[in-house]
């Protein structure tokens, strides 16, 4: 038997009158009451006026970011779309003759990038999987809209909300590296 029977300590007559429990309850409640009414020790936050300080590392709404030159960082690799557990992310790929990427040697960027904020569970998988540091869970926690359509954020909106994040700048470095190799024999032909 894994059940262990614990003996209940016998109560004194005084305890059995419920009086100590009642007095104890009275003491605790009275203390809190006085604290709130006379000292103003209230834990309530007056929400729309008072705002919570979002801690670092908070996982709010995922937004797309731009690099230091204002170029879209996302290269439409669709890993976030693949990894997203509630399938909130939907990417429209550019196609071979689609739009030109903001950064020339990055070759592509999404034609459309939609996050359905109603579906999003703020798990952060997209940020974790992103090889381009292009999507980050930011500090927005209160996202509202008047209908379902308005809760689907498109690329333009996500980029606007996301702001700038420079990161490792691998495409810029690559471009500079390639430009430095001007005597490349194939080009010299």
């Amino acid at each position: 038997m894994s059940t262990k029977v614990v003996d209940r300590p016998p109560l004194t007559f005084y305890e059995r009158t419920y009086l100590p429990a009642i007095l104890g309850g009275l003491k605790v409640t009275a203390k809190h009451f006085a604290d709130t009414v006379f000292k103003g020790n209230s834990v309530t936050m007056q929400y729309p006026e008072e705002r919570w300080v979002v801690p670092e590392g908070y996982r709010g709404a995922p937004y797309l970011v731009k690099d230091q030159d204002g170029a879209t960082k996302c290269v439409s690799c669709q890993l976030c779309e693949f990894v997203c557990p509630p399938k909130a992310i939907r990417i429209t790929t550019p196609g071979a003759d689609g739009l030109t990427a903001d950064r020339k040697n990055a070759e592509k960027m999404p034609k459309e990038f939609e996050i359905n904020m109603l579906r999003c569970i703020f798990c952060g998988m997209c940020q974790e999987v992103c090889p381009e540091e292009a999507i980050f869970l930011q500090k927005d926690y209160s996202i509202t809209g008047e209908n379902r359509e308005s809760m689907i954020f498109n690329k333009e909106k996500l980029l606007k909300l996301g702001g700038t994040h420079a990161g490792v700048q691998k495409w810029k470095n690559k471009l500079e590296e390639a430009q430095a190799q001007e005597t490349f024999p194939v080009d010299a032909q």
Binding site: H32, F33, D35, T36, S42, V43, T44
Partner: peptide, 8 residues
């Protein structure tokens, strides 16, 4: 109730 629970 609110005051007893440190609310407003």
């Amino acid at each position: 109730s609110a005051w007893i629970q440190n609310r407003v």
